[in-house]
Structures are given as C-alpha cells and as structure tokens.
Design a protein around this nucleic acid. Sequence first.
DNA 1: CTGTGTGCAAACTCTTTGCATAAGT
DNA 2: ACTTATGCAAAGAGTTTGCACACAG
Lengths: 139, 139
Amino acid sequence: MFREAPRPELRAFLKHAGLRPTRQRMALAELLFAQGNRHVSAEALHEEALLKRVGVSLATIYNTLHQFTAAGLLREVVVDGSRTYFDTNTSDHNHFFIEDDGKVLDIPGEALRVGNLPKAPPGYEIARVDVVVRLRRAR
Amino acid sequence: MFREAPRPELRAFLKHAGLRPTRQRMALAELLFAQGNRHVSAEALHEEALLKRVGVSLATIYNTLHQFTAAGLLREVVVDGSRTYFDTNTSDHNHFFIEDDGKVLDIPGEALRVGNLPKAPPGYEIARVDVVVRLRRAR
DNA sequence: CTGTGTGCAAACTCTTTGCATAAGT
DNA sequence: ACTTATGCAAAGAGTTTGCACACAG
C-alpha cells in the first residue's frame, strides 16, 4: 500500500513538457494520467488530492491545470456555464454531458461526424468545432 | 423620436406567455425581440437598458431572462465557461462563437448536419445536441 | 544560491437570494 | 385588496491574484 514510491517516468513526463517536477505537479499528474482518460473539474481534483493526503491548495490546482493545458497535456472542455472541465484526452473528439450529475464522457472521434460545415464569416477562420451531446436520464 | 409610445402587441405577447406585462418586462422584451435575432448576456442587456433610460436592476435582468427562458421565449446557449448567453432564436440551430470578442452568431439550422450520432449510454437518452463552431480572426 | 512554484487569503466576476417596497389586475 | 414583480444589498459559487515562504536545480 505504499504510494510514495519514486516515479521516474512522471518526472521525465513533466520535464519533457517543460515543467519542473515539483511534488504537487507529480502528484496531480499521477492522479490525472495514471488511469485512462479523465474529465475533472478543479474542485473535484482538489478533493481527490486531499483524500490521497497530497497537500495541494486549490490555487495550485488551478495553476497546475492551466499549466498542463498550456503544455498540451490537457484540454479545456466547455459543457457547462458554471464549471470548467479539463480532459486528459487531447485528441480530436467530442463529449457527452450528463447534466443531472455534471459528468462528462468522451465520444470517440470516429463515432460522430459533422457535415456541411458552414464557412466562417469574412475575416474569420474556424478554430475548432465542439459538439456536446447532452443526456438526460431515460424515462 | 418618442420611444414611450404604447405597445399593445408587446402586452399581448407577454400575456400570452403567461407573464404579467410589467414596465421592465415590456422594455426588455422590446429590446430583445424588436430587432431580429439577438444573443445577449445579462450584463450586456443591463447596460443596454440603462442606456435607453429603462430603470432595471441587474437582479431583475436575471429574473426576466430566466422567466423568458422558462416561457420558451429564449434559449440558453453555453459557449463560454464564464458567461451565460441567451438567444432569441429558440428554433433548432447552432452557433458560431468568436472568442476574441465574446460574440455569438447563429448558424442556420440547415447549414450544418451532425451525422453518425452515437447512441446514448444505457439509462440515458439524448436531450439535445449542441454544436459550437469557434472562430478566430483570420491571419 | 537563484529563480520558480506554492499556499494563503483576499479580491473578483458572474449569478442567485431574501426581504421590504412597488406595481399590476 | 390581493398577488406578483422589482430593487437593493448581501451572499454564494467558481476562479484569479499578490506576496511571503519553500523548494528544485
């Protein structure tokens, strides 16, 4: 049950992204990337870190999430006006959003196609197309 | 240049939606619906109302926007994590979003098609599909 | 050692709420 | 009159910031 073992690959992972491997960043990177794709809010990640006895302040969580995003390790997902979600899957794909419990799920890239894209108004170009499939509990 | 003329059709409009035609609601309804489709944030509508010398508090703006939404006169649009937009076009359509200046534009319903919709996970059904085409200034 | 990262608390933005007053029917 | 809406100010969520201290290289 020892979770404080050295993690050389995490160290390298952060270094490669140009981020100093501090204790907090290592711990958060492990939480985020050790177990498949995840969608977290700052608050949720903070609670999770506290549960695992990792001392991290909420401010550092925000800093870290933004640094990871800037480094291309995370992607911000806008599905809900009131909370920001970060997705560990940075590839091109879309999302289910379950409004009832604020959960975000990936839709694999191939599983959805947007056809007939309109062209951007003059002076603009398309930066990205986001599709959110909103779900409700079936009756 | 008199803008304080009686507006019987607005009165009827609100009544029909089950809302009491108060001075504030009439004024806001006029701002929102008198000139084609609009996409407003609460703050923007508030400023606009103040400019036209309509005394409305921000709290009332929020109340009114939500009442109009509940009555089916408006539709909430999630394009930006930090602000809520309301769209006077309640029909099925999608949006351009210009991040640089926080502007929302309609994409006509026929101009975009989502194909290959994945089916909802067990226990859920699709409530709605939202597509946001994010724009940036062309280089 | 030197510079970057972290923690804390305070500030900030957007939005909601509670309650006394005002307005609609 | 009776009921519902409004305004204000205060509270609330989520997020950001400034600065002293701690830590990585």
